[in-house]
Structure formats: structure tokens, C-alpha cells
Design a protein around this nucleic acid. Structure first.
Lengths: 156, 156
DNA sequence: GTGGCTATACTCGGATAGTAGCTGTCCGAGTTGGTTCGG
DNA sequence: CCGAACCAACTCGGACAGCTACTATCCGAGTATAGCCAC
């Protein structure tokens, strides 16, 4: 069970955008330089965030990405599931209905207990991430962080 | 983020073994037939469970696998991490220390907030699975399940 | 009849190919901003 | 001097190779059993 490396990119880039004025846009190339990442592949991940509604993209000169919603309404779960997908890690393939020990369909009306426990664990994971918003992250950053981020992004 | 398909196999096979008398051994071939799975690959996963101490293997005729500990002391987490590994899904590669926006090592004494939140979510997931033992699973099965499992495994 | 030995069949254990999904890259469509030319 | 049209550069968006890790398979080492032979 491994999250894509790009998950870290998405989380940090979203946090970066959250530190800027709401209307300011940042290009994928700028973000890639800011974190020393492959620009094209990073752009691909940003597109996933746009598709999920987390970011908004603007084309043309002075274009780029900005947050699609206020930081308080963007949870870490939104970002992670935007780049990794929403399908749960454990997928029950109903092997209990196959082979010599196959159970009858009647006995399988209730969902498999093991699948239920795995789903509960996944729910705990999602709840933990859904309970943290970008606003919460910003609150824990040093006070001078936004200004610093703005300057470094501009190349200063 | 996806768990191997064999995770389901390991969970079900461990549950099956937990329904049998403690000394009874079941071969990988028997388990493969019981769930209609590729015998060799299933055997490989059983080896991982043995390496983790969840199961004990006996070679030779009348040999096979059995639980390595009482069911109450085997959690779902033990089984899942035996086949999938123990490394957390989110791996912080410290991109905050790279590129134009690189932070100084001093500012990175504390672990990255995002990594901490991801680790907390992973901890919630592990705690959820660690809180369920095979004994708990057995308690939720129908009363006639162990007898049925024993018969079907024997080919009856 | 009994004990020991041998051969056998069955078990696990590790080394070896095949395949799907993440990683990384490239080029094209669209849009905005600046420039230039005419009035 | 002012306005509009044109050009150009920069942006995102989607289509195309490369590689790691899960999936699947085979064959070899080891062992407890069952049969057999000698006593």
C-alpha cells in the first residue's frame, strides 16, 4: 500500500497556494522551480486537482493555478483523493463464494466481516484526513511563512 | 493506494485456520482448493505470514500451516502488514528543503506538518485494524461455521 | 511378531518470467497581453 | 493623441515511452510417514 510520490507534491503546492492572496495565480513552472520537481508531471497532477475542484486553472499569460475554494473548505482528504483516486485500498473479491468452501449466495447477503473491518479502518483514515483543512495547516505555520513564500515564488 | 489482492487471501486463510483445532495443519494446496486460488502464489503469501510469526509451518507429509499464536493475540494488522509490509503509505521526501523555496535545516527541526497529519491518519488506520483480533472475527461468525469449514477442507 | 531400515511421497522455500500502474516527457490548442499601425 | 487590429509569447490540456512492484509459476531441499525386510 503506497501513495504516489506526487501526493506530497499536491499537498505542498496546495498549501503554498493557500498562503497567497485569493486571486493570485501561480504557474506549474513556478511551482516546479519552487520545489525542484519535473514541471510537466507536476502540471499533470495539478490538472487532477482542478478536475476535483480543489484548484482553478487559468490559461494564457499571467495565468496559472489558484485555490478553487476557501482554505477552510479544502481538506487534506480532498487533495489526497484527487491525485490517488477514491477507490478503497482493500477490494473484496468475494473469494468466500469460490472454491470448495464456497458459501451460498444466501449466506452472503451480509457483507463479509473481514471486508467490513477493512472498510472501517479505511473510514478511520478518511475521517482523520477529512478533519484537517488547509486553514488548519496555515494556522500551524510560522507567522512569517506567507510573506516568505510570496517573495521566494517571485524569485526574490 | 492499493493493497495487494493477496491481502484478502491472507485474511481469509488465517480466519479459516483459526476455526480449526490448534494442532491441525492445513497445506497450501488445500487452502488454494478451498478458495480457488493459485496454489504456488498463495504458498508464497503464507510464507510471509510465517516470517511474521502469525503462522507456523511444518514440512513433510501431514505437514502444512497452523496459527503461530492464539487467535486472540493475532490482529488484522498483523496479517495485513505481514503481506503488505510495514512501511507507511505516505513517505515524506522533504521537498520543502529543495528548490527555490528550500527551507534551512534549522527550520526543519520539527517534522513537516503535512507529514505529521498523514502519519496521524495512518496511525488511525493501524489502530483500527490492531483493535480487531481473529478471536473477534470468530465471535461474529455463525455457530456452525467452524464445523462446516472443517468438513469442506477435508473434502466432505 | 517385532524392531530397524529404506524408499517414497508430500511438504515448504527460494529463484525465475509476465503484466499493470505510477513516473516522466513531449507537443498541440487556447488565451491574454503588448505592440503597431491607422485615423 | 486615441482606438482597434494584429502578433507573439505564455498558459494549460491530453497523448506517448520507461520502470518499479505485484502477480503468477516452476523446480529443488528437507522431512515424517508407510512399507519392507531381517531377526
Amino acid at each position: 500500500m503506497k501513495l504516489p510520490t506526487s501526493t506530497e507534491w499536491a499537498l505542498h503546492c496546495a498549501t503554498t497556494l493557500a498562503q497567497l492572496p485569493a486571486e493570485q495565480t501561480v504557474s506549474a513552472a513556478q511551482l516546479a522551480a519552487y520545489y525542484d520537481l519535473p514541471p510537466a508531471y507536476l502540471a499533470k497532477q495539478m490538472q487532477l486537482l482542478v478536475k476535483a475542484g480543489v484548484l482553478t486553472a487559468t490559461t494564457g499569460p499571467r495565468g496559472g493555478f489558484r485555490l478553487g475554494r476557501p482554505p477552510a473548505r479544502i481538506s487534506l482528504l480532498h487533495i489526497v483523493e484527487a491525485v490517488d483516486g477514491t477507490s478503497p485500498p482493500y477490494e473484496c473479491r468475494e473469494i468466500r463464494q469460490r472454491g470448495l468452501g464456497a458459501l451460498s449466495p444466501e449466506e452472503c447477503r451480509n457483507t463479509c466481516i473481514l471486508a467490513a473491518k477493512m472498510a472501517a479502518a479505511h473510514r478511520a483514515w478518511r475521517d482523520s484526513l477529512a478533519g484537517v483543512s488547509l486553514a488548519d495547516i496555515l494556522a500551524e505555520l510560522p507567522a512569517h511563512a506567507p510573506e516568505r513564500t510570496r517573495d521566494k515564488l517571485a524569485g526574490r
